[in-house]
Design a binder for these strands. Structure first.
Lengths: 306, 306
DNA sequence: CTGAAAGCGCTTACAG
DNA sequence: CTGAAAGCGCTTACAG
């Protein structure tokens, strides 16, 4: 083809705004350059930061994100997983609400997938040391001299929440401290943190410290404590979990347990892209990411973040 | 086919985990049940809440979300738009960084699209009354008796930021108040709100009130003010814009301008789904969503939210 | 009512 | 080096 013809073709294609159809391209290359992300929810800073990390990691590998949030029931989860088939090269699935069998039944076989906080034979797994983080936090509170340390959980059916509770329990037991009336169930929302504090106040439960199973609940608790005229950390020490970005902007800045979302995102995407290119599945032994205690002013330790 | 054969086929299909390939299905039905979302960024509460709203709206119509965040330059925007082609039924594009020509050149013709805060002939548009919101806020601050009212902008190239600045200017001028040295450029990040306050303090600029062009900057400003020993609202009134969810958990709760993201999300998705089904494009006259002043304690008006 | 064919829009490997 | 054909995995309309 001559130069001038080529130029004319390119011009016309631009005029008509021709853009290749990616679905068609995917169909015969069997590459989509897309990573599917299945999350239990999209609401809140934690998932937002995770999604943001995954987006950055994906873009650095020239991939896009197909997102499915909020799977209430297992049918939702199943539908979300099935809707990904043929449209993604790989999958990141977070599903802390015990559903290994649903995952097992609906994960397209041979599709590289990384499960975060869940395990299904034949699929990759990444785990966060929730328990270790909760132990470190509880130990920190004990070391500060607190005795009546309450815990607001993230719900009975949530695996991550159960691990955090277990960490708290272990250390409280070790320290010989009572947990009677000090453990109350929440659901990871601000509202439930607020409700937990009101519950303690109504019951007349005296507290030295409150360890919420995530920062969102700590935020809700902070509002309720303040409303009740209690000062943090002078009257009650307050701690969260996740180390969401806004924690440092609170007054007082929130002591928390850092969950390495950037690292998790990078690792997940790197492994998935590698598996896609090699055409292999990932090892199902989970890589466990460790958490870090981040001491800020809300527990009275005065320190600023490491 | 007999009953027993059918049962056996279904069983085998379950065993093999057969799931239809959606890319192939899309190709001949030309329906993807997916809405593409192109945002300038994924970072921060504002985009998180928008994405969450879009996800909910999309799911209520049985659609998924294909997300492209962070388009730094116009090549990124172009690439993101092109990558959507054939993989989505419709598009929501937010691009406040003046780029109507890039949009025009890269929006697949005939693909239903809603632009938020931008206009391109032949495509749908949704706008938010940033200017009116900023006017209402500035008027509120003036009415509270503040005279030296500073404004931290969201950047010179951002259209939404320019509208908010214009609203502030209009009211300040109307009220006969000086703006000398009171307008400083930010970029919608916490960090830039913090920097703005330090700048005012270093310059010895006295302030009655600080109106940040978004809540993230107000958050950063709050930290810097507190660090400088200034109390909000006693020493300096503080106001933001966007009304992100955590504003009410700050101390003091943040006065802000509510941007109706839920309504925006619902409207966008409804219109797009309707256009997809009808096979038509949307009207390019933008529907303008109005904002609401939300008075909380950070400006000293004492009120709680309406 | 069942089964084979055509076609969605691409890309890749092959024949001319 | 160019151009026509085959095929990715579906669904839909048609022939048997």
């Amino acid at each position: 083809v001559g130069e001038s013809t080529r130029a004319r073709i390119e011009q016309v294609s631009r005029e008509l705004r021709y853009v290749p159809n990616r679905a068609a391209r995917s169909l015969n290359t069997s590459r989509t350059h897309t990573i599917g992300v299945v999350l239990p929810d999209l609401y809140g800073a934690f998932f937002s930061e995770l999604l943001c990390g995954l987006d950055q990691a994906a873009r650095s590998h020239h991939h896009q994100l197909l997102v499915a949030g909020s799977h209430g029931g297992s049918e939702d989860l199943a539908a979300a997983l099935q809707a990904m088939n043929g449209r993604v090269d790989a999958l990141v699935v977070m599903s802390p609400v015990a559903a290994a069998d649903v995952l097992e039944a609906n994960l397209p076989a041979h599709l590289p997938a990384i499960l975060v906080g869940a395990e299904v034979p034949g699929f990759g797994a990444l785990a966060v040391d929730h328990r270790g983080g909760a132990e470190a936090m509880t130990r920190h509170l004990v070391a500060l001299g607190h005795r009546r340390i309450a815990h607001v959980t993230g719900g009975a059916t949530n695996r991550d929440a159960a691990d955090r509770l277990a960490g708290y329990r272990t250390v409280m037991r070790e320290a010989g401290l009572s947990m009677d009336g000090l453990v109350v169930e929440g659901d990871f929302t601000e509202r439930s943190g607020d409700a937990a504090v009101r519950g303690f106040l109504d019951a007349g439960t005296g507290l030295d410290a409150l360890f919420a199973a995530n920062d969102a609940m700590a935020l809700g608790a902070l509002g309720a404590l303040r409303e009740a005229g209690l000062r943090v950390p002078d009257d009650v020490a307050l701690a969260g979990f996740d180390d969401i970005l806004l924690g440092r902007y609170l007054a007082p800045p929130l002591t928390s347990v850092h969950v390495p979302l950037d690292q998790l995102s990078r690792l997940a995407v790197e492994r998935l892209v590698a598996a896609t290119e090699a055409g292999t599945q990932l090892e199902s032994t989970p890589a466990v990411l460790s958490t870090t205690l981040v001491v800020r002013a809300s527990c009275g330790a005065g320190g600023s973040a490491p």
